[in-house]
Amino acid sequence: MDTVACIKRVPDTGAKLTLTDDEQEIDTSHLGFTISPHEECAVEEAIQVADDHDGTATVVSLGPADAEEQLRTGLAMTADEATLLETDGEEWRPRETAAALADALSGDAGTDPAFDLLLFGNESADVANHQVGVRVAERLDVPFVAGVSDLTIEDGTAVAERDVTGGTEVYELDLPAAVGVKEGLNTPRYASMRAKMQARKQSIERQNPVAGEFDGAIEKVRLEAPESTEGAAEVLGEGPDAVPAVLDLLRDDLEVI
């Protein structure tokens, strides 16, 4: 059973997000990059399912040449193959991204898609458009469920669970199928140093998709870091001596006791 996990290179943010002067991007001059958290779980699941069902796990990323770093992370986690759909580094919109991914994953003409199970993160950490997975699935005519928190493969069926208030919805999808997964699905493995070294030598397939043209569009104008309410907290005290002040706060101001 062959699996594919789609991943995106995103900045590894810390305590503060700073924008570039033109307000078009996050200032990444002091930041590293990573795979979106939901997608780390997609990669882990792709590897586990391929291992358990005697198949191949592939990681695919559409992004700049530097996204090779994230694909190598996937390989170091022991994915078997990696494909980079290399762009010029501009931010591709969901329809363009989905069309290019679907082209790359459509398999040979007239046959089934090039996977049994296709995994996306529920949404990317940065842009969070919540739609690339659905659009790829629609293009490839495979079933799709978003928000997946648990996944089991049984006899050609993917049993996917989604958390809802007070319980869990269970979906059964005939394979080939696609899912959008959420962090918590599994615990992504840490790649060993040896695996990282090996991953550096593995070949990565490269394609150069051309962005499709679509009617209508959503266009980014600029980004804004919302006014923070920062003004420093009111310090109630230091150490256990602050407890009487905390009690006053809980009782008189917040009325929680």
């Binding site: 309410t229 907290a233 009111e234 109630l236 150490g239 602050a242 407890v243 006791i257």
Partner: peptide, 28 residues
Amino acid sequence: AIMQKADYAVVGDLHEVVPELNDALGDG
């Protein structure tokens, strides 16, 4: 960063502050 973003703060070790708070709430 949390000290900038919070409304109220206690500067101290949670391992000391929280038990003390629990004791006080228990008495109350």
